[in-house]
Computed example of a mutant assay.
Amino acid sequence: VRQQRRHHSTQSTSWDHPRMIQLYQSMADLSEIRFSAYRTAMKLRRVQKLLKCNVKVQLAGLKEDKLLQEKGMMVDIPLYVDMCLNWLLSVYDSGRTGRLRLLSLVTGLVSLCDADVKDKCKYLFWQVSGADGQCDAAHLSSLLNELIQIPRQLGEAAAFGGNSVEPSVNSCFRMV
């Protein structure tokens, strides 16, 4: 069962899983965190935990009911896949056209996965760099545009420069 969410400012409608609606509502208590980077990290961590992306799930013999065992508890894989897709669509397809760019999908999943931040950054850079390991301004801009969608969806984009990534791209290439 999904719940309809009407965005009055954009005059659009989207459907969210009830647990995702609860997650978004629960983030209000994080507004007490003073520094935006910490607040955004805590919001993303809450998403990560809800979607079970923060734990290493061990296969306990995939059963027909598609449940996996995680620390002695059964995990409903279709439920978490559905919620993860819900989150990805909320971040990268708010108009719910049913389309995601491959870079959007990769960026969203990498941001949720339980891995070292340096490894995540290397992997994402590799996604936009050429065979020579170099990245041009256009590709870096694409990556940063994908990344800024996450704090935007969490209500924190203003703290990271809003929707404009060009100053960051220009800054990176001035340093080289």
Score class of each variant (00 low, 15 high):
Ser12Gly: 04
Leu102Ile: 15
Ala157Ser: 10
Arg19Gln: 00
Asp119Val: 10
Ser14Tyr: 10
Leu140Arg: 00
Leu112Phe: 08
Lys118Met: 11
Asp136Gly: 00
Gln127Met: 15
Val117Asn: 14
Gly161Glu: 00
Val169Thr: 03
Thr97Gly: 06
Asn170Trp: 01
Tyr92Cys: 05
Cys53Asn: 02
Leu124Pro: 02
Asp132Lys: 11
Leu89Tyr: 05
Thr10His: 03
Met20Glu: 06
Ala41Tyr: 09
Gln149Asp: 01
Trp126Pro: 11
His7Met: 03
Cys172Thr: 15
Pro78Ala: 11
Lys122Asn: 15
Glu32Cys: 09
His139Val: 01
Asn86Arg: 03
Met42Asn: 11
Gly72Ser: 02
Leu62Gly: 06
Met42Trp: 04
Leu62Ala: 10
Met27Val: 05
Lys43Trp: 04
Leu51Ser: 10
Tyr38Ile: 13
Val1Ser: 11
Leu100Val: 14
Val75Gly: 09
Leu89Trp: 02
Ser12Thr: 14
Cys84Trp: 13
Gln134His: 02
Glu32Tyr: 08
Gln69Leu: 14
Met83Ala: 10
Cys84Phe: 10
Val75Trp: 07
Val47Trp: 07
Tyr38Pro: 02
Leu30His: 05
Gly162Arg: 11
Leu140Pro: 00
Val117Leu: 15
Leu143Lys: 09
Met73Trp: 06
Arg46Phe: 04
Ser94Met: 09
Gln4Cys: 05
Val91Pro: 02
Met20Gln: 04
Val176Asn: 13
Val91Asp: 05
Gly155Asn: 03
Gln134Ala: 00
Ser12Asn: 06
Val110Phe: 06
Cys121Phe: 14
Tyr92Asp: 05
Lys122Arg: 15
Val165Gly: 01
Ile77Ala: 09
Arg5Met: 11
Ile33His: 07
Thr40Asp: 01
Gln22Ala: 04
Gln3Asn: 09
Leu79Lys: 08
Leu79Asp: 07
Phe173Pro: 10
Asp29Ala: 03
Lys71Pro: 08
Cys135Leu: 01
Val47Thr: 12
Leu147Phe: 03
Ser26Val: 02
Pro151Val: 07
Asp114Arg: 12
Asp93Gln: 11
Asp119Ala: 10
Leu109Trp: 04
Arg46Asn: 08
Glu166Gln: 10
Asn86Ile: 05
Tyr123Ile: 13
Trp15Lys: 07
Gln149Phe: 01
Arg99Gly: 15
Ala115Met: 12
Ile148Asn: 01
Ser168Cys: 15
Gly72Leu: 01
Leu79Asn: 03
Leu68Met: 08
Asp119Cys: 12
Asp132Phe: 06
Ser111Val: 09
Cys53Tyr: 05
Tyr24Trp: 12
Glu146His: 07
Val75Tyr: 08
Leu100Lys: 15
Ser36Cys: 13
Asp65Gly: 07
Leu109Ser: 02
Ser90Lys: 12
Asp82Glu: 12
Lys49Leu: 08
Arg34Glu: 15
Ala138Ile: 04
Leu124Thr: 02
Gly72Lys: 05
His7Ser: 08
Asp114Lys: 13
Gln69Tyr: 12
His8Gly: 04
Met74Asn: 13
Tyr24Asn: 09
Tyr92Met: 08
Glu146Trp: 05
Arg39Pro: 02
Thr97Ala: 04
His139Leu: 04
Thr13Lys: 00
Ser36Lys: 11
Leu44Thr: 11
Tyr38His: 13
